[in-house]
Write a protein that binds this DNA or RNA. Sequence first.
DNA 1: TCATCCATGTCGGAT
DNA 2: ATCCGACGTGGATGA
Lengths: 270, 270
Amino acid sequence: MRMIQADCEVEYDGRGHTNLARGIRVILIKDDGTVIIHRTTGVKPVNYMGSVIDFTEYDDTDNNAHIIIARSKKETLTLICHSMIVDLRLPSVNDDSDFDQNGTERQQQEWLSRNFSETFGDDCSFIMREFNTGDGSCDLLGIDDNGNAVLIEVKRKAVKKDVYQVIRYGDAVRRAFTDRKHSILDQIPGDYSLSIFAHPRLILASEKINKGVEVECHSHGVEFIPTGSQWRNDSVPAEIARKNVNNASIIRETSESSDKQSLFNDDDDE
Amino acid sequence: MRMIQADCEVEYDGRGHTNLARGIRVILIKDDGTVIIHRTTGVKPVNYMGSVIDFTEYDDTDNNAHIIIARSKKETLTLICHSMIVDLRLPSVNDDSDFDQNGTERQQQEWLSRNFSETFGDDCSFIMREFNTGDGSCDLLGIDDNGNAVLIEVKRKAVKKDVYQVIRYGDAVRRAFTDRKHSILDQIPGDYSLSIFAHPRLILASEKINKGVEVECHSHGVEFIPTGSQWRNDSVPAEIARKNVNNASIIRETSESSDKQSLFNDDDDE
DNA sequence: TCATCCATGTCGGAT
DNA sequence: ATCCGACGTGGATGA
């Protein structure tokens, strides 16, 4: 890992083409070749490149510049460094530690599969998750008492576009029905007829919902069903923070009103 | 800007919840409060947080740990640092330099507006860009010789989902027609009747196309039109690299076969 | 390799 | 503030 702060220009060429005019940025070069360039604000890097195949590093004495070129199979990232303010090479370490993640749509989907009839109605029973419609996979597949398939798309926050995702799944299974494409049944546990896809029920299920989504649902024959947030509580891990904060002495603390700037740079030496 | 390398645990709580077990990572804390935590590989940070309102920093002497807590309105990021290997506070700089980007859909859209009939046919003339359908804005609006609106969605790479984006725009303008919603015409230069939206032509235009998209188009009455890549050539900026690489002396150079690892850390002192 | 979909998506623009 | 769609989206997963 290499940590650089440099006064530099950056050019990227590949899927697109970008030019970043001269200025001071922070550059990370990881041991796997990944290059990440950050400006002074924002979460996302202004430039970056992964899958680097080779590096070339020049000293352009004529222009008094240090040049770093990273190449991947189809891309090139060029840094013209007019001055290297910091250039720190850190020992390589490998980090195979666990990263646990909660509150994902996957967990929401799993929770709903275990709370199916409670959420979607007693006339409706769960069949499977990740049902392949032939045109993308639907989060949940169920069947109602009329023998119609129930296609459910799960979102943490539903937007209008999602309504069309469900419509698309409906189109796909109806086409499987009219085309007598029996292979779509192979993935389904149990013994079902293709006719369950003649008139599928379409459901969009979500925790939060954007304005206008219910109207969009209604005008396209899609049911909207709120899921609540209960699913989040089922798998919250122990918080590491609480057990450490006790007995700790505060070194520095800021609030919204204070000058944030002064905290992170060396302009304010205490 | 603060650049840290630390042996740390990380917990995030907010929209989701994550726990990262102990290990060595690089942490950037920007002057705007943004925190970015990188592992040893990959482009994306393992943890991050923007819109930070306040920081709290502890020394937990009991556990011999340094604790940094960043809070935004609805989120908390906690770092338990068991050792601070590097903790560099860099002077704040402001960087208002230009960042030019090319090869965007926006440019493709603009190019198509200037090459409209060549691309979409002589029976078809351009009206405007970014036409608000009432349910999302369509990239290009034109009109054909039959007096029907032509709704065009532009993509660099078309996928099946995009077909439904166009369908949705078609739904919206037809609804405007049946509902006699004349206000949709306000944004259109020139004098048109609502009836142009009775039977809109729907077009998906793209440079690249995924398998199955044309079939999806055909089965939903959407036309697919390839745009080519000509639009990319209209706005390629001068390459800054070429003019600098001449007369430069190579310091170090790697190729695919060499040991990349050795380039970026200090295991190989030359 | 290609296609699909989620993401603590982030970000910018419009309403 | 919310809504909306692009992104050099990245990354994982399944065919």
